[in-house]
Amino acid sequence: MSTTPSNIPILPKLKKESIKTLIAKGLRVDGRKLDEYRKIIIEPNYIPKAEGSALVRIGETIVLVGIKMEVGQPFPDTPDEGVLMVNAEFVPFASPTFEPGPPDENAIELARVIDRSLREIKVIDLEKLAIVPGQKVWIVWVDIYVLNHAGNLLDASSLATMAALMTTKIPKVEVEENEIKIDKTMKEQPLPLNHRVVTVTVGKLDEYLLVDPTDEEELVLDAKLAISVSEDGRIAGMQKMGPGDFTLDEVNKAVELALKSAKSLHGILEEYVSKTS
């Protein structure tokens, strides 16, 4: 059962008004323009013990993604392919509104949106992850850990996931008769990737569109549209979020805005991650 949230913090009316007034002038409270992102910092390999990882900051939002690889059974209808599993945890200290417990609908939605953005376009070449075809394959566990919620969790999670995957190394595996030996201290092959995908969240307030909303701005927005874009400019996923609406025209404009922002996000990814290799 999904329930209208009733635990959202109260944003003072004065603040709401000043945010709206600024946006009408094409500005944000922190001085950004409507199509500008906050400062982005990516730290690849933040958790060296994991097979892959990355910490991403967008402004004050912090998301950490860890990649673990385990050997397991393939899905019955794709016996020669590896398995991708995406989970998100909204760690309770990340926001006064987060409660301890199993992932709530927001965490589940975030994980599933990221999962879909990776899956259909085949970011990971799962076909190359079979160990013993039909029996044993690599399972790629993507765990998204939200450490501080200052808005735009989706874009930060998407960037962190991609950065983590780009630095993931597959543990050495030896197959002897029916035994599979894994040596996690020896990580050789990088995870085979076909594409890179980033997600751009476009927020709508009255007739204005903006990217990278802060948590305060999110309280004022009518709705959001998250658009996942591959490095070759294709749309790899979309999710409208929030109780408001978009006209067809606004959707098209949001897509244009997202395609533009995606280009610079891909650039940032390239810059940071190539530094590490």
Binding site: E120, I121, G233, M238, K240
Partner: peptide
């Protein structure tokens, strides 16, 4: 509005 898959 959701999209699962790839479109230009």
């Amino acid at each position: 509005l959701q999209l699962n898959g790839v479109l230009t």
